[in-house]
């Protein structure tokens, strides 16, 4: 069946033409290439890191963590490779679905062309089957879209946790003792899961890694991080230069406003002022949130 006859058959069936598979293939190829690039980067960053392997001590440990740690370059590159492959995999499923539905519609289109000449009474029936197929296709692609939305949420939550972890580490850094532990800061938690797991409601937040903190002691850092990530993502999506001074000031002002909504009860007189009227030191706290998100 020629392209023209196929399009004519679809028009008889009353369904729109299917999306162009070449466009889907191009996206799959792009994602595969990006995944391969990140996989290679993960290996090369480990190789580059080994060049400094003879170094040891606290400074060397900090670089080790930056490169090979849980949130380090090598694992992040590997993780990105996996995620890019997952999106490519989802597009492959989408493509298969399009091919499957396209094949069925092509058969129906051929029948519709023949029906016009020999059995016009069959056309309504064929139209109804084609409409059901089209609806099914939209249903499947909507589910695939929701699946990708879920992937996006996981990715965002992970970035939020990473940034929140940096806030926590920055907060406890001045408490670091020569033996590598931190000056304790014991707090009471109301997180039932944490209490059950640790058999106590007392938590030394300074000597606990961010990811092991109870939910209530993660919350403030998590909220600030989420706002920062959201501001940066929205700005990037609208083409704003997130490294500009203007963005830094605008975003910091929003960070401050949102912080004040959460903490007004105990905020100092100065902290209750609008961002523009804060002291340099107070403004820097808000700017630090944006800097942490940007990794600068």
């Amino acid at each position: 069946m020629t392209e023209q006859a196929w399009a004519g058959g679809l028009a008889l069936l009353g369904v729109p033409p299917l999306p162009d598979l070449d466009v889907v293939d191009r996206h799959i190829a792009d994602l595969d290439a990006a995944a391969a690039h990140h996989r290679k980067l993960a290996a090369e960053s480990r190789r580059a890191h080994r060049l400094a392997g003879a170094n040891s001590g606290p400074a060397a440990d900090a670089v080790d963590d930056h490169v090979t740690g849980r949130d380090g370059i090598a694992l992040t590159a590997g993780d990105l490779a996996d995620r890019l492959s997952s999106v490519a995999g989802t597009l492959r499923v989408t493509r298969e679905t399009l091919v499957w539905v396209g094949g069925l519609l092509a058969g129906l289109a051929a029948l519709a062309v023949a029906a016009v000449a020999y059995a016009p009474h069959l056309l309504p029936r064929l139209r109804s089957i084609a409409a059901r197929l089209s609806a099914r296709l939209r249903e499947i692609t909507a589910r695939l879209g929701a699946l990708m939305r879920g992937m996006s949420t996981t990715l965002t939550n992970r970035r939020v946790d990473k940034v929140a972890g940096r806030f926590h580490d920055a907060w406890r850094a001045p408490r670091k003792l020569p033996d590598g532990t931190y000056e304790p800061r014991v707090k009471t938690t109301t997180d039932p899961a944490w209490i059950k797991k640790h058999d106590t409601d007392q938590v030394d937040i300074a000597n606990t890694r961010y990811r092991d903190l109870p939910a209530d002691w993660k919350r403030e850092n998590q909220e600030s991080a989420r706002i920062g990530v959201q501001l940066v993502d929205e700005a990037r999506a609208s083409g704003v230069d997130v490294r500009s001074e203007r963005f830094m000031e605008e975003a910091s002002s929003v960070v401050h406003d949102k912080w004040l909504v959460r903490n007004r009860d105990w905020a100092t007189e100065e902290q209750r002022r609008p961002y523009e009227l804060l002291s340099h030191a107070e403004k820097e706290k808000d700017r630090d949130v944006v800097r942490m998100v940007l990794g600068i």
Binding site: H27, A146, V232, D233
Partner: peptide, 23 residues
């Protein structure tokens, strides 16, 4: 890759998130 809005929104979200992670 697909003109369907319900698919495109999820796709744009996940690729934008990945690009942010790349930055």
């Amino acid at each position: 890759p697909l003109p369907y809005e319900e698919f495109a929104a999820g796709y744009h979200e996940v690729t934008a998130g990945l690009r942010a992670a790349c930055e």
